[in-house]
Design a protein around this nucleic acid. Structure first.
Lengths: 70, 70
DNA sequence: AATACAGTTATCAAATATGATAACCATTAT
DNA sequence: ATAATGGTTATCATATTTGATAACTGTATT
């Protein structure tokens, strides 16, 4: 899988999971101590986040990182 | 878990897995199309790799990313 | 109308990951 | 001795992520 596809898929997955937990993007960003614009970028697949960033997202949603990678 | 601990743990895990597959750090780096110095940095937990970097490592070792995160 | 909420995108600065290269160390083999 | 293998670290340049800020869109509410 190329990078663009991979990141788009990841972003979509994060978004779906967030929505399934009924959390807004802004709320999640705040919970992760993130800029909301960065959360928007990640969910859109427009950036290649670091693993620690994903760890923070997973923590904030109370899931394991691998759930973000499905 | 703070960032330093997280990355050290990840690095150790990657190293352990690589060794269990009998691959040298240099070989794995080459398989990932990486600089070997970067592989050394990652395994030492001295850098916070991007998710796509980890994807490449997982691919090269024929495992899922989450195996790297145990 | 104004305000609030939710999300998106742009711009730029700061921080940092990765690439490239080199030097070093240790061990083993020739 | 040299050469090969395996790994580590430093330095610097390049590429990219994240932070900060602002502006925009759309929808809903007051």
């Amino acid at each position: 899988m190329d990078k663009d596809d991979f990141l788009k898929h990841l972003g979509h997955n994060i978004k779906t999971l967030r929505e399934s937990k009924g959390i807004s993007q802004q709320k999640l960003a705040a919970d992760c101590n993130f800029e909301k614009s960065n959360m928007s970028r990640i969910e859109a697949g427009n950036t290649n986040p670091t693993i620690y960033t994903l760890y923070k997202i997973a923590l904030a949603m109370d899931v394991e990182i691998h759930e973000l990678l499905k």
